[in-house]
């Protein structure tokens, strides 16, 4: 579908230190309980150790962080997966929202999304997710996560404006899935180690 305006995020993975200010600022805004994270910060690390006979080591260890909310995708697979129409993409700003009164809590959207953006509220049995801080946008403000970032690693704007500022970025790097799946509205500045093989090592935190 075409939207009148499409908002999106920019993440600089060279600056992000994994401080989680964005995650906590997001939770404070709507009193989101532990276990539900509209914004998550993935710690991606790798490298090998070689122990030498004289007690020394050689290694090529690396690590970097990627902060993610919802990418309010152009091809939102969460919307496609939703059986009730609760998950929907707004024409006026391209934000993907949940109409909670239509949601039956089946988690189809969460299973479909390769970014873990939809987060089930187990108490209310409804899906929740990053709403792009639409009411802050209406006041002319950035989303909470953007303004909270101590490293100025997150930006948010219309995709037109972001592309003017950052171009298309460096393309998506691990641990992000290929952009072709959902056409996410997320521009990435790649970490210098973004091409290397590693693992997400903080599943307990996201």
């Amino acid at each position: 579908m075409t939207t009148n305006v499409q908002y999106g995020f920019y993440i600089d993975t060279t600056k992000c230190t994994g401080c989680k200010a964005c995650q906590v600022a997001c939770k404070d805004r709507k009193d989101i309980p532990v276990g539900i994270n509209w914004r998550r910060v993935y710690e991606y690390a790798g490298g090998d150790w070689v122990a030498n006979a004289n007690g020394t080591f050689n290694q090529n260890v690396f690590a970097y962080y990627t902060s993610l909310g919802c990418n309010h995708c152009n091809e939102p697979v969460c919307v496609k997966a939703c059986p009730t129409g609760a998950m929907h993409k707004r024409r006026e700003d391209g934000l993907v929202h949940v109409a909670s009164q239509l949601c039956i809590g089946c988690s189809s959207c969460a299973r479909a999304c390769p970014y873990d953006a939809p987060q089930l509220d187990p108490e209310r049995k409804v899906m929740t997710k990053c709403d792009g801080c639409f009411e802050r946008l209406a006041e002319g403000k950035n989303p909470s996560c953007v303004d909270s970032c101590p490293l100025r690693a997150i930006d948010f704007d219309t995709m037109d404006n972001l592309k003017q500022k950052y171009g298309n970025g460096d393309g998506h790097i691990a641990p992000l899935p290929p952009e072709s799946i959902t056409s996410p509205n997320l521009i990435i500045k790649a970490n210098v180690n973004g091409h290397r093989d590693g693992d997400i090592i903080n599943y307990s935190e996201v």
Binding site: M1, K30, E75, P76, V77, V79, K80, G85, H88, K89, R90, R91, E92, H97, V98, A99, S100, Q101, L102, T128, D131, F134, E135
Partner: peptide
């Protein structure tokens, strides 16, 4: 993806 709602003013969570 098809079937996106055109507007959601009446359906927002918040």
């Amino acid at each position: 993806v098809v079937g996106c709602k055109t507007s959601s003013d009446e359906a927002n969570v918040n």
